[in-house]
Amino acid sequence: MSALRFVLAGALLVTGVMLELVVLARWSMPGATPDLVLVVVVGLAIARGPLMGAGAGFAGGLLLDVVPPSAGIVGLNALVFCMAGFWVGRVAERNERTPLLIIGSAVVAEIGVILAGAALGGLLGEDRVAWEEVPGLALTGALYAAILASFVVPLITSLVGRTEPDYFSR
């Protein structure tokens, strides 16, 4: 893994976290907050495979867990995003990179992250989980993830592809 790739992925993740907390969350969209961090993780996973997906998911989830104003269990999002990133990377590795794959994997990843986050949080004693809101959150989250993925993932794949043109050429 080249250093430049790490730095670029790190910069994309930090930018995604900042944009999500400072811009997207403040807009108060109905339902879930558009999960730009997860879409960035999905983009990196599609561009670079399951290893990058798992690492980016871990880093992005951990950032969401600790950067203010976080108040949940530290490590929960790291766990869930890591699994999502790994799964998306696996799927992208084995299939052709079509728009359906991009949007579909983002939607499934977002729904999975919301459900798993709520379930694990509830199991671990997080008092705040409101189960009656979870379906609404999952649906709106999936919608926003689909919209974001349609332009963020191609942007990421072109950015990451440009730094190392001789790697995955599919």
Binding site: V22, R26, A32, T33, P69, S70, G117, A118, V129, G141
Partner: peptide, 16 residues
């Protein structure tokens, strides 16, 4: 000034 808000899917209502 409020500069950041916690994501809704974390179920926590916090701001920075």
């Amino acid at each position: 000034q409020v500069i950041a808000v916690g994501p809704a899917q974390g179920f926590a209502w916090t701001v920075t």
